[in-house]
Design a protein around this nucleic acid. Sequence first.
RNA 1: GCCAUCUUAGCUCAGCGGUAGAGCAACGCUUUUGUAAAGCGUGGGUCCUCGGUUCGAAUCCGAGAGAUGGCUCCA
Length: 624
Amino acid sequence: MKYPIEVVRHSTAHLAAAAILELFPETKFGIGPVIENGFYYDFDFPEGVTIEPETLKKIEEKMREMVKKNLPLERKEVSLDEAIKIFQDLKQDYKVELLEDLKKFGTTNAGEIWGGEKILTSSGHKLFSERSPDANIGVSSAESKGAGGVTIYTVGKFVDLCRGPHIASTKDLGVFNLQKIAGAYWRGSEKNKMLTRIYGLAFGSEKELNAHLKLLEEAEKRDHRVLGEALEFFTISEKVGKGLPLWMPKGAFVRRQIEDYMYKKLDENGYQHVCTPHITKKALYEMSGHLAHYKEDMYSPIDIEGEEYYLKPMNCPHHHMIYKSRTRSYRELPLRLGEYGTVYRFERSGVLTGLIRTRCFTQEDAHIYCAPKGLKDEFKNVLKIFKEVYEDFKISDYYFRLALPDFSKKEKYGDIEKRELWEESAGQIRRAMKEFGAKYVEVEGEAAFYGPKIDAQIKNVLGKEDSIATVQVDFYMPERFDLTYTDEKGKEKRPMVIHRAILGSFERFFAFLLERTAGALPAWLAPVQVKLIPVGNAHVGPSEKLAATMAEQGLRCEIDSANETVGYKIRKAEKEKVPYMLVIGDKEAKGKKLTVRARGQKDTEEMTVKKFVERVKKDIEKKL
RNA sequence: GCCAUCUUAGCUCAGCGGUAGAGCAACGCUUUUGUAAAGCGUGGGUCCUCGGUUCGAAUCCGAGAGAUGGCUCCA
C-alpha cells in the first residue's frame, strides 16, 4: 500500500523514537513533527548521554533492524485520563504535560495548548513556519472535544500520543537517514529546558533522497559566505570582531552600484536623502521609546563629558528630528527622507551569520511623513517601487507578511486605547495591498510596538525563509516626537510615518543576491565585465589598446597578462564569474572580429568590437 | 544567550603522544601558450589562546575565543 510521504515521514519519526527508546530506555520524549523533506524529534536524554554524530549511526542501525522485523504501528483510542495515566506510568513527563494542558484548555488547538498563548505563526526563519506543532500532539478537535479522548500509537515498546495516521507496518517505510543534531527549547521557550533535537530526512525512494542530498551540496556552494570569500567581496576578521564584516574592493564596488541604482530610483520617486550621526544622546532614545523597548539590543552607552551617548540602532529618531527642525506645511507632504543609514545592534552571538545577521549594517532606509488620509496611496507608491526594484534584480518569488498586533501582549503593545488607529491603518495597508495586487499573508502578534508592518519574505537557496525588507506604519512616533504639519485651514495636524527599507540592508540584500546568482552577478553589477586574455606576450599590447577602447564605452575590462596558458586564464576568469571573456590572438588581429565567450558557456561567438560593445551595453541596460 | 560539533600554511584538508605534511594559491625561473589547471623550484605555520597531565602535547584534560548547524531573538 502506498502512503502519502508525510505519513511515511511521520512514521519514520516514531521509528526513530522507538529506536532511541531501545538504546536509551530512560529517554523522555518531546514532540516529533513532519517537516520539509523529513522530520525531527525532540528528546530529553538521560543524564550523561550525549548524542554525537557517531550515535546517530547507531540509532540508524537500530532503526533498520526494527524495519526488518516488520513491526506494526498500532492505533488505540483512549480517554484523556487514561492517556495521562499511561504516560505517567511510562514516566513521560512531557507527554503528560501536553495532555494536562489539553485537558485544562479543552481544545487541541496547538497554539492554545502551547503555553496558553496563541501561535498563529512563528518567525520567518523557520522551516515550515506555518505548520503548527499540533500535528504531533495528535488529537483532532473532534476527537478531543467530543469524547475527551485521544489516540495513541505504539511501535515496539514506544508509545506516543499522536493523531496519526501512520503506516501499518515498518516495512512500509521509505528511505531515511538521521541528518543532524541540534538543541531546541521545550515548547520553543527559552525559559524551558533545552532538549536534543534530531533531524532526519525521509523520502519515498533512494533516488529522491540522493537528489535531495545533491541539492544540499549545490546549495552549500552557493553559500554567500563561501562565495564572498572566493570572489573577494567581503571578509570577517576575528581581530575586528564577530558580526562586523569588512567590504573588500570588489564587494564595495557592487555595493556602490546598488547604492547608485537606488539613489536614482528614489530621486525619481520624490525622495530626499539625508545623513545622520552614528552616536546620539540618551534622551533621543528615551523620547522615541526605543530605550524602553530595545535597550537589551543596543550597545552600552559611551560616556562623553559626563553624558551618555548610544550607538544608533535605527535611523528613525534622527529623521524625525530633521522633520521637526522647522514647521511643516501640508504642501510639503508626503515628505520622504531617505538615508543609507549605518546602524549598530547587539545581535546575540549565536544568531550572527555572514552578511545576513551582523552587528553593524547599513539600511536602505527612509521615512515618509504623510497626512493620515494619504497613507494608502503612499503605501502603494512604496509597493510600486518595491516591484520595480525587485524586477530589476530578477527577484520574483517573494511575498509579504502583514504583521498585526496581539493585544494580549500588553508589554509590547501597551494599552488598547490606540486600537482604532491600529485597525484603521491595518485596513489602509490591506487595501493598498489588495489594490496593488500584492501577495500577502496576515500574522498576529508580530507587529512592531509602534504599528503594523509588512515584511517581504524571500526564500534562500535551501528554501529557508527570511525577511529581506520591511514597510511599517507608525502612529506612535509622531506623537512622541510631537510631529506636526499645518493643514489647508491653518490647523496643526499630526502626520503619519511610514518606515520603509526596500532593499532591507545592503549586507543582507547582497548576501541574497550572491546566493541567487551563485556569484555570477549580472553585467551591470559585476566588478569586471570583460576579461581580455592575450595569447602570449605578443598580444598584450593590442589587448591593452582594445581594453582602452571598450573602457571609453563605459565597459569594465581587465587584462590577464599572466605568464599562463589560455586554458588556465579561461578557468580563472570562469571562477571569477566574469560575464565575458575575450581571447586575443593572431586570429583576432587578422580577422578584425572578436571571439566572445560568455560566462558558463563553452561555445564561443564571433562578432565585431562594435557589436560586442553593443551587446554588453544591452545586457547592462536590461540588467541581465 | 542556549544545545551540539568544529578550529593545523592565504584556501581545502591529512597527521591524533616522539617535535609539521599534501593539493591549490603566492613568489622565482623555464615555456609564449587558442577557450576550465604547462613544467621545475622557493618561501610560508606560537598546529586558535591560556592553563594542566606527561620525560615529551598539534595529538590527552580544563577554561576562554572564534566558526558551523539548530533553538530563542530580530525596532
